[in-house]
Nucleic acid binder design. Sequence first.
DNA 1: CGGTTGCATGCGTAG
DNA 2: TACGCATGCAACCGG
Length: 907
Amino acid sequence: MNVTCGVTSSIKWIKGWRLRSGGFANLCDHCGSAYELSVFCDTFHLKESGWRECYTCNKRLHCGCIASKALLVLADNGGVQCISCIRSLELSIIRTDEKPAGISMMPTSNVGELQLTSLDYKMGGDDIGVKELMLSNMEGKERNNFFQSQRDDANGSLGQIKREQGLPLVGEVGSTTFSTFNEAYFGSTQLAKQNNHKDHVGGKDMYESLAQTCLTMTLGVSPGATSSAQPHASSIVEGREQSRMSLQQGQRPRPRTSKMGLGTAPEASKDNHPQLRVARPPIEGRGRNQLLPSSNSTIVPLFEKVLSASDAGRIGRLVLPKACAEAYFPPISQPEGLALRIQDVKGKEWQFQFRFWPNNNSRMYVLEGVTPCIHSMQLQAGDTVTFSRLDPEGKLVMGFRKSASNSASLKDTQPAVSNAPNENFFSGVIENLPRMSGQSGLQSFKGSTDPHLNVLSERLYSADGDANLCKVEKQEGRLNEGLSLQPLLTPEKKRSRNIGSKSKRLLIDNEDALELKLTWEEAHDLLRPPPRATPSIVKIEDYDFEEYEEAPIFGKRTIFTSGSSGGQDQWAQCDSCSKWRRLPVDVFLPVNWTCSENAWDSQRCSCSVPNELSPMELENLLRLNMDFKRRKVASQPVHDHEPSGLDALATAAVLGDNRLDVGTSLVATTTKHPRHRPGCTCIVCIQPPSGKGPKHKPTCTCNVCMTVKRRFKTLMMRKKKRQSEKEAEVAQSKNQIWCPKDEEVESASQSAMLVVESSENEGRQVNMLDSSDQTKVLAEKTESSKAHLDLNFHPEREDSQAVSARISMMGLLQVANRPLETYLRQNGLSSLATEQQASSGSHAPPQAIVEGEERPTDDGYCPTVPPQAMEQENEQEHESEHEHEKESGGDMSDDGLDKSQSQNEPV
DNA sequence: CGGTTGCATGCGTAG
DNA sequence: TACGCATGCAACCGG
């Protein structure tokens, strides 16, 4: 019994959902980042198995400059430019604006669009510099408008849709958020419609309170300005004053509010000086919006708190960072506070009392009644609880993260495969988002004050901690392209001082990151097409693609297996009795599922019925599944630079929902429209926005479809040509001693085998190639890249892009076929090869092919990029290419899932 | 008497 | 020096 990817449909199941409501919901198969393609990006990147191409990690796109992937920005014209190019362009635009107006007011949305989208979703930490520059040109209301715009933008396609429609910007988000807030409900917005009012009194209060707060605090902003927007906005302003800090709680933003006089009632202060008690979004709390895969919602990481002994104690009081409490929780004027409903990662809603104690002249905010929740999560002192908000619902979500030690012990005690993968999902998602958004990470270990993490950190960095600074400085050198990063760097240095301090803030080290990555993978596995959603089948050439109009939803994680007979099964674990039940492969299960709902096996529709599998078989199943996933994950490079969750969050927060990076990357971004301008004729722009244009039918002859078809046709022709060449070669080789003449096939084979082997030998595969091999591989990949189907390419850069070797459907198909193909060829020639080997030691390619059959091929395409490699600064372009190629391996790694699909299914 | 609640104290950090 | 936060501790409450 082999564990499979579960894709059995003859129609490729596309893990991409086209949202009529606006854009796409998707997870990047490359890096796992959740990303959203706004309505403007109503295009799809056809790859072997569907449309997906993460703008975040698509390293292949580059403008020719020496730029790491983190510095790439989708350009207006549909191509990609490096950040320096974009920046210079933006700055010139900004500076030529003699009379700056709020961005939202700008007559041409281009500018705003340019600034917002690029800055918000593509740039790294250095864009804070750009932002500041922009801010410096704006005053008061304009800034607010800017922030409003920004927030609007951050809200995803919604804002963009409205902007595009020419509706007033200011207040839109507020009204939108307001209207949806009360309908808050965890999960899909559909579900949000249920019990909304009665179940979310707290949320309602919160929102209203927030709204009030914002009304009083915002300067010149329309009353409709959303509460959620304002804190962020203000935080950005303050972010200028407050150097960027770690996003951990405790890295206090030092609001420096006006000191409240003794005897001054907080309420009075608030009333008289709203800003005194106004939500001050701690810069650390604001993470970029993240798309919640289950719906069109986005997860907005707010803040997190490392549990102190007191917090985790029996008292049941969780001390909240003041700034966070004031920023993200409803303002409270009475010490009694109010009840807050917060949903945990399991979906259970908890009600806490959010209140404060007068403390000196300040307040001390606490959440009371957290003991049950803490216990439910099995949290201890040192663990971290995270608070996030689901937008647009506005629902508060509480996640958690175990400390390294706790998680380690947890791992030891938990089954390899949990039947409740969603248990950690949100925590995983929330924590992963920032991490994944960052590829390089000068923050990975820096600032970690967690004893456990520091140990590792100290191992990896010089004992004196200079490594951090050096790294930062290096970053500075690379990024300081006309913009001072000092504001960013200083905090880094400061943060390093936190190490060893009393702070218990945690950062995620690589180990955690890997673990979280697994969690993310699990999360990915949970995605299912909406049960009642009928996909429209888009047939392009001979390939069928499912197009969904609704966001994916969470389904119960199941395990797919393929028996020796070829039949496939799906196994699901009962949430009640934990028994595993066999189900048809095409069955979709809700997150919570029990035996009683097993309508497919009348004999096992009760928890009382024993497991169908013997303990041994079950163990084997779980083990295989775990192995399967591990291999899949392992095949993805884990960049040691990836900012740890907290740091990344911090960065994201500091940079205003948008940037993370510091030149580093960043991360998990909710990709926005790549700033195409009116008149742009790129494939992105010519396609009507989601939900607005006619649906593409197989017979559709619109430009987009025609372009797609044309390109696809070209690809298919190339594929056929190659196939015929291969066939010819195989035929020839059967008649002759194998001595490949076709360099391409040769290299392809090597490449495939290399990849396969690399997955088997994680971490050392790259080194296994000698330079010539690498050259071949590169050449091969480049070759296949020429056939890629890229719907977002820059027409003028087609050539360069082709060279940039983007993964193509063709390439994927080819590569996917290679292991088996090579295997067969090898087998067919084994005797010959043996003979030849005996005499000349020949080409017999290294083993490993067999592995290709059993293991998901995706493993094979992800040569792990050594951390060192990722740290290369000032890499030359050709080096970049190498990186890109390596990345391409990574890119393909996930597609391996699809490749395995293609091996399992007739497509 | 044990648990809860509210406040006070002291330490660490940032300005 | 101001501030935030962890925690101590006394007052209060209820069984």
